Computed example of a mutant assay.
Amino acid sequence: MPKFILIVSVSAKGSTPEIAQVIGDELQKSEYSVKVIDVKDIDSLEGCTAIVLGIPLYTVFSGKDAFSMFKQQFGEELAKIPVAVFSAGLFYEGLKHEKEDYVMTTLKKILFPINPVTTTLFVGTLEGENLHLKDRDENRNVNSIANFQNLDKIREWAHALPSLLDLQQRDFPARIAGKHKVGT
């Protein structure tokens, strides 16, 4: 069975799967075999040589979300392969250092016992009509879509992933002829 990079996303507002797709597209351009999938659609990690997890900040703090169930189901397997994590949420690029530290510390707790080789934060999008009541109250000026994603930053991180995940040392046949189609 050909080996592939599995890019798993959980969605709260839609930004996380969009970012996952950009990462998948970039890795596929580098001729890596990639499979981008929603966490709820995973039934096996067979053939997966590395995982990129996309976790929205909105859902993971409860501990009762789809990611938590995925972690519980595949925890032992996740400990055996390299994992990279990105989290998407609504915070601005100039996020105060202490808030970024809080988010990263909380994310580490949520991920435990998974020990990612890299973890990063990306800014997502904001859709006024999809906001929870509390969020609408805090963001009164948002009545349509506001996209805060930095695609250059996302693509830069995606280009660094093969090295961070140590794919060359993991018997990963980069440039596979029979690649998985991104998005299947």
Rank of each mutant, 00 (worst) to 15 (best):
S44K: 09
V142A: 06
E129M: 07
T125Q: 11
V8I: 06
D135I: 00
V34L: 07
R155W: 06
I7W: 05
E31T: 13
P82R: 03
D137V: 12
Y32Q: 01
S11A: 05
A177P: 13
T118Y: 02
Q168L: 08
Y32C: 00
S44D: 12
V10N: 05
K35S: 09
L111N: 02
P82E: 02
I145V: 13
C48N: 04
K13Q: 15
G75D: 09
L121S: 15
F86M: 09
T59W: 10
E31S: 06
A146L: 10
L121I: 09
P56R: 02
I114V: 11
P17C: 09
P82D: 01
T106D: 11
L57P: 02
G14H: 02
I55D: 00
T184G: 12
E31C: 11
E127V: 10
K80G: 06
R155M: 03
E138A: 04
T49S: 03
C48R: 08
A160R: 07
E129W: 07
F70V: 03
K108H: 09
T119W: 01
K179I: 13
L165P: 00
S44T: 10
K13D: 11
T105C: 13
I114D: 05
V39K: 01
A20N: 08
T120I: 05
Y32L: 01
S87T: 04
K40R: 12
E156K: 07
V117C: 15
K181N: 09
E46L: 09
F70W: 03
P113M: 04
P56C: 08
L126S: 12
V83T: 00
D25Y: 13
K40M: 11
L161V: 05
K181D: 15
I114T: 14
L167G: 07
H97T: 13
T119P: 15
S144A: 14
Y102V: 01
K80E: 04
K71F: 09
V34F: 07
M69S: 12
P162S: 03
K109G: 09
T125N: 01
L167P: 03
F4S: 12
Y102H: 14
T119D: 14
A12C: 07
L57H: 12
Y102E: 08
A160M: 09
H180W: 04
E100Q: 04
I114Y: 12
A50N: 00
P2Y: 05
I81F: 04
G75E: 10
A20E: 04
L111M: 05
Q28L: 14
G89E: 02
K71C: 11
H159E: 13
K13W: 13
